[in-house]
Design a protein around this nucleic acid. Structure first.
Lengths: 343, 343
DNA sequence: CATATCTACGAAAACGGTTTCGTGTTAATA
DNA sequence: TATTAACACGAAACCGTTTTCGTAGATATG
């Protein structure tokens, strides 16, 4: 085990002081050209690199970003993560990831772990259980402790911090309007339980579109599916009992499940039933027919979140300046594929 | 900004020394019961937590694991990551992730960044470009520097370290044998370029099965697709020109693409063409028909990798003990779904 | 009463850096 | 020649812990 070389060792070897070595490597002009050359050559030879931990302790900055997300085996979150990681890496930051697994307790636990000096700031999307419990004291705490925090997608209104969200309501409106424009009249909504605020916003957009087109919202055409462990039979019963000629689904899994069942009943997509989903993942691309879907641009969201966080980290605000928080909206776009009638 | 409280501040406040505070919090019996109570109460009141960075410096352990993977928007890697994260978290470790994006340079850059004290050991799967270049000096270097390293999936034979792999050859054999047992005679292989050693192993298993069943390997039945940016037309031409009644595909994307094209030609799956893929992701589950596929048990691989790494981290070997490296094989399993004839 | 033994605590070193400030030597200036 | 400035470097503090070792004072022992 060849331990990494330290300033102290270089100093001893070259018979100079630690300060001289440190300054030489920083090319300080306090040090003579001769000495600098000697030290630099030696350091290069032994491949000296300053120890990050020591630097962190000295500077009170870790150059680490903490990312807390509900799930990682999940297309949207991984794209956001990629955006974060990419931007962070370019700026010399590392990313430490904790998965809350949709659990409130794990979220709290993870944040406490990270808040003990491991990171400089947080980027996160809160867990389902946290939204359900409606308890955000752990978020408030890290903010009070002075950690910059950026919330994305599943954000909390009552927490004051930077936020990155999607225009869920508007894009749901547009998606619904698109199907109405196709001539569809009875549009179903396939969604999750309402404590997910993004699902709620999508439902709002859906309803607004119907109203704008003079169609009454039929509550029977809303299918609420559990967040996890969807049984095919739920959808089956819905398709059996209700008549609809289009469907807006809040994620791509619901959409392809619905498509499969609809097709099994002998109905054609999109002629008999148009379908639009959310999340432009593999499923949307490779389903038959391919799925018209809302691209959430997760990577952009991630980049923006990272940018906001790093901006806060590197520009310490003055003593009397008021902290100012921004909310950035990333515009989702509708990707038209085979599950809708495209002209 | 309420900075976290330190030992020094507690000591000043309570008019005792730093050592006394530290020992009190560790419930050392060097300290009188009275003093301990006082200190502990005060610490609890101010929610004292030792600073991780300082601990890292002192202990020369960060309790961080570095994970370097080629891609994160990828089902298999995310499942492995989940396994790593889960196990690591249980043992009090944090995980810092770097994505090499299949690039040799980024891989090297990331590893150097991490090796400067940010982490205690590596878990990684090498990038495509690294395999292609066949240059592993960066891996050798971190090993020489004393970092425990665990390689998974895309491993390198010439690097001495712990490894977690799948029985690719064997499961490909079994998958092929299954289709032969169905009575299929002309089995296609849809694979990637051969510098991916896992693809190569799968091809080996495929060939061995054919031989065992007395069928000659027909090189024309092997379709080599590029690693990224597959054009549908490649597959289209293949389906047009070759006659086959089954196909083994090295990933699920190839499999669903093939299924779609085969079905478009009016052939039925699995009656006319059986298809088996690799990776039990969303696509396999939700395609029509659902795809018979090889489940790689990424989560287990991740857990095992993390376990191996942490074992090495926590059991420093004695001075003269020989370092011993293990290679664990995670048995893949075949999940039978609609794209094969199941009895 | 002198000495030995606890008890309860503090000083200081160490982890690996950065940075401020002080100082001995040499060169420039009056 | 005496004074000053410039140069080149080292000592030490600091970041926040842990831990070893030393010791003052109290108590026990002979």
């Amino acid at each position: 085990m060849k331990r990494k070389i330290t300033l102290k060792q270089i100093a001893r070897e070259l018979e100079v002081s630690i300060s001289t070595v440190s300054k030489s490597l920083k090319d300080s002009d306090e040090i003579s050209a001769d000495t600098k050359k000697k030290v630099q050559a030696f350091a290069k030879l032994y491949n000296y690199r300053p120890n990050n931990i020591a630097l962190s302790l000295k500077n009170r900055k870790t150059k680490n970003i903490g990312v807390v997300i509900p799930d990682i085996v999940h297309h949207f979150f991984t794209t956001v993560f990629r955006g974060i990681e990419k931007y962070a890496n370019e700026r010399g930051y590392n990313v430490v990831v904790c998965v809350s697994d949709e659990s409130y307790e794990k979220e709290v636990f993870n944040m406490e772990l990270l808040a003990n000096g491991s990171i400089d700031g947080f980027i996160m999307s809160v867990s389902a259980q946290t939204q359900q419990k409606n308890d955000f004291s752990h978020l408030k705490e890290v903010v009070e402790q002075g950690f910059p925090l950026v919330l994305f997608d599943r954000v909390i209104d009552e927490i004051e911090c930077d936020k990155v969200i999607m225009n869920d309501e508007q894009i749901a409106y547009e998606a619904t309007a698109k199907m109405l424009a196709e001539g569809k009249k009875k549009i179903a909504l396939v969604t999750t339980e309402s404590y997910f605020n993004v699902s709620e916003k999508r439902a709002d957009g859906y309803r607004r579109a119907l109203k704008d087109f003079g169609i009454k919202v039929d509550e029977n055409l809303t299918l609420v599916l559990p967040f996890k462990g969807v049984e095919e039979s739920y959808i089956d019963a819905f398709v059996e009992n209700e008549v609809f000629d289009a469907a807006l689904c809040v994620n791509e899994i619901f959409a392809v499940l619905l498509m499969a069942i609809v097709q099994k009943k002998g109905l054609r997509i999109p002629e008999d039933v148009s379908v639009i989903g959310f999340t432009d993942g593999l499923l949307s691309r490779y389903s038959t027919p391919s799925l018209t879907t809302v691209a959430q641009h997760g990577e952009s969201m991630g980049e923006i979140a990272a940018e906001m966080l790093i901006e806060k980290l590197e520009n310490e605000i003055g003593f009397h300046e008021e902290e100012v928080y921004r909310t950035q909206i990333v515009e989702a776009t509708l990707i038209e594929r085979g599950s809708t009638i495209n002209k």
